[in-house]
Simulated scan of single mutants.
Amino acid sequence: MNSVMKYILVVVVSALVITSGIVLYSIYKQSPSGDLNYISVVYQNGTKQMINLNNSNSYLIRPDNYNGSTYSFSTPVVKIVSLAPSITSTLYGIGAYDKVVGLDPYSTYPPNSTLPIVTSNSGFDISLEEIANISPQLVISPGLGYYPANEENSIVNTLHIPFIVMNPENVQQIENQTLELAQITGTTGNATLINAWMQSNLQNFSQHLVNISKELNVFYYLSTPGDWTAGNGTFINEFFTLAHLHNIAANESGYYVDSGENITVGEPQIILLDQYVNYSSITVPPFKSTPAVKQNRVYTIFNDNFFNEPDFRVIYAIGWLISKAYPENFNLSDISQYPISLQYPPDYNM
């Protein structure tokens, strides 16, 4: 289960709970007023680095009775708990995985991790006991409201461990997140190389698509039951834009259940199936009469973590989309080599 699938499950459960008269914590986790966008870290050589988390749409939860405008770490950050697959992947990609001491259960890259899992209840709750046992200097969480606010606040105000919520919403903010995590861990040089690699490939995509005048219509079948899809304001919608595709579900925002009208009216020429959606789902109306089904242009994405997790590996997701939509213009081999040497390269498990 990736972050978006977990988000969908949280939405469904929340709807059931709310209709039962029970209040559940917020689905969308936005920066509360008063939380901190600036942190200061110190490196082994004694130099300090100021970091503006706002550049990646992120923040540090303000501890009770903390009146400063910047949270300062007095010692180098060498023990981090990652509660998001995208954070784990980025820390590995920038060469800072040796500083990770605990994970959420959905972090699969790098594979074969032996690090302790610090969540419970199938990943829906943070185990405060595990966090206390590990005693990290920093906990980093995604920003989709995965974890109850009381658990986050207990980490901050009972265990006195800093807690950052990272919530990048587009490719530029993903690059900023990469840089910020590198600044925290002292691997800024690697982040600079990675962001340059991302920009170079995005420019390469654009050059390969420059002669395509009309976008193809696309529908992303994200999950069942119900025809869950991704609308405006989602990562996948930005990927479609960068891949010169028109998302027929972009007339609504966020992740939602499509009524079928978009599919009938939009006539998708390409349908993307999440890896957990069975092909039989599109052999019935309104899908079976679409140009995508008639022309056999239905593709199952290779690994939804590449599409739904906000980290540098989205370059492979966008490249794959272009290679499927416009195979005469682009091939996956056109993506340049990742600039950092890793035991498991970022295209692992594609």
Rank of each mutant, 00 (worst) to 15 (best):
L181E: 13
Q177P: 04
G233C: 09
G93F: 00
D98A: 01
T264A: 14
V284H: 02
E238N: 07
L342Q: 11
L36A: 11
F205D: 13
N190P: 08
S341E: 14
Y66D: 12
R313K: 11
Q172L: 14
P168K: 07
V17T: 13
G46M: 02
P339Q: 09
I27Y: 05
D334S: 14
Q172H: 08
L179Q: 15
E261V: 05
V139G: 10
N237Q: 12
D64V: 08
S141T: 13
E152I: 04
I18C: 07
S33E: 15
E328A: 13
V284N: 02
V118A: 12
K288H: 10
Y147V: 05
Y7T: 06
S58F: 07
G231T: 00
P345Y: 00
Y43A: 08
N176R: 08
G102R: 03
T178A: 11
Y109H: 03
L222V: 10
K294W: 01
V4W: 03
E215I: 00
N305F: 11
D334T: 04
T114Y: 03
I315A: 15
T283R: 05
N55K: 11
Q207S: 15
L209K: 03
F235D: 15
V314Q: 15
T88P: 06
Q172M: 12
E252R: 04
T178V: 12
T283S: 13
M5Y: 06
N305T: 10
G319I: 01
Y344R: 03
G226H: 00
L321W: 05
V81S: 07
S40Y: 00
P136W: 04
N278W: 00
T119W: 01
G233K: 03
A132D: 14
T19P: 01
I335E: 14
Y316F: 12
T75P: 08
P268V: 01
P291T: 06
K294T: 13
V156Q: 08
A230I: 08
I117K: 10
T300F: 01
F330Q: 08
V78W: 00
T300Y: 05
Y109S: 03
V265E: 14
N170E: 13
I22L: 14
I80E: 11
V78Q: 14
D104Y: 01
N303A: 02
